[in-house]
Amino acid sequence: MNGKGKLTPMQLDLLRELGNIGAGNATSALSVMLQDRKLEMVVPEVAVLSLPETTALIGGPEALVAGIYIVISGDVDGHMAFMMPIESAAELVQSILGVETVEFDEMARSVLEEVGNIVVTSYLNALAEMTNLVLLPSVPGLAIDMAGAIWSSILAGAEIYDEYLTVLKTDFSSEGKQIEGHIMLVPGKAGFDQFFKILLETDR
């Protein structure tokens, strides 16, 4: 389950390692897209947090962000979000389209969806390769809205209502291009147990 303090040190290590591999791959995909060698990721964290704490991670409930959401199905269920402050989303679209200013029109939105799609699928591909799990991403959904509205909608849709949830998160930022963002992975209702169960079976 998602409860607090239920993870053993070994499980935490395993999740951290998964986070590292996934986020490393996602960050390099993004740096290629942006042709930005200065894009760096902060070492991924496994955090057990309350709902308000997870919202604070992405700038607080009222912060305007672009959030790309992808549902994972296959061997395990999960939910991935790629969230950027609105200024970073604008900078990202500008840099990809080679334009000076951005209106979040159809074109800009489809760029963001595609970038989110590539980032998340890069993350998932690395996880799948490492674990031999089948991880299938849905089509990407994009919302430009308050961080709290986006995050709570994702959790409600996933029926994740625990006091505390386990989140795998990675922050990245670039000095060259004022871009920062967060990649969040939360397991489905079954929690990370599903991951551990399958991983322990396939590893031995």
Partner: peptide
């Protein structure tokens, strides 16, 4: 007072 809730999505 003013009671405020922010970030209502599907909530």
């Amino acid at each position: 007072d003013v009671l405020i809730t922010v970030g209502l999505g599907s909530c």
